[in-house]
Amino acid sequence: MTSDAPTQGAAAGTAAAAGPRSLWSSLARSQPYQKFVDVLFASQRRSFLILLLPPIIWVLSQHLGPIVQMVSVSFTDAYPRPPGQEAKFTFDNYLLFFREPVYMMPFMRTLIYAVVLTFTTLIIVYPVAYFLARHVKRENRMALLLLLLIPFWVGEIVRTFAIMILLGNTGAVNLILKSLGLIDRPIPFMYTGFSVSVGIIYLTALYMLMPLYSALEKIPASYTEAAADLGAGAWTRFRRVTLPLTYEGIGSGATLVFLISTGYYGTPVLLGGPNTTVFAETIAGFFHVAGDKWPTGAAFACIMFLASLALTGAFLSGMNRLSKGGRK
């Protein structure tokens, strides 16, 4: 429809366009729809309530519901309830954790692994993020970043399998060491804490990389230039300017890596051995056997969730204090 067309032509054009223009126009003009809309959006308040209620119901029933149910099952003596019996409230499931040292080992191991792995991932990934954000030209950044993202789109189990091939007795690392004449017999990397760690770092590195990269990318070059003009050396510039400005990125990356690494189940099962049982395997064990162990499993899951939340919270508040101190 051109603006200089005769009026009649334009009107005809509009009429012609109105037909196939869209189902929506005709639908929106139809009587039932108008009535429906009049009821639905009668007032600002009503339309807001219609927008608000379904998310509230969804979030409470689907996001919070499973967690609440898990907590409530953890306080019962048996689940599912034997027919004709009232569920009894009990702390036994929680007390069992503290009574039996068998469970303490995997629990502590999980937390220690998670802390060590988070720290290791940070050390490994920081230079990579730094390089990408501060040394690479803007137009190349995207390509180099995408290159790193490819493997991270591949699932947990496939990547774990890849690590098994890398570290196995007939794996690539042992082959190389052997052909270099460094070893006679293959080093048993697999089914140890080492293989579990390599596997989990392989899975979580991206969650550290992304927050660090975006934190580093935001720092204007003028900051470090100003520090250099004031006579700060490379190390001082990094320690006093760059690093404090990335505390927030470190905080969110470390939180993600920590929480995610405590939750892996398939990877430690495949890469670990009897001496590397993590708490996820302990918890899962209660769900493989008959149903009456579920409350214990639920209680253990609650303990782990609380412990990881507490550690994360402590870490984040520490980081917060650090970054505030840095800004003074």
Partner: peptide
């Protein structure tokens, strides 16, 4: 929510 905890919470809720 860490993976394993999410999984068993859903398992219980499904039940």
């Amino acid at each position: 929510v860490p993976g394993i905890i999410s999984a068993i919470a859903f398992r219980i809720y499904a039940r």
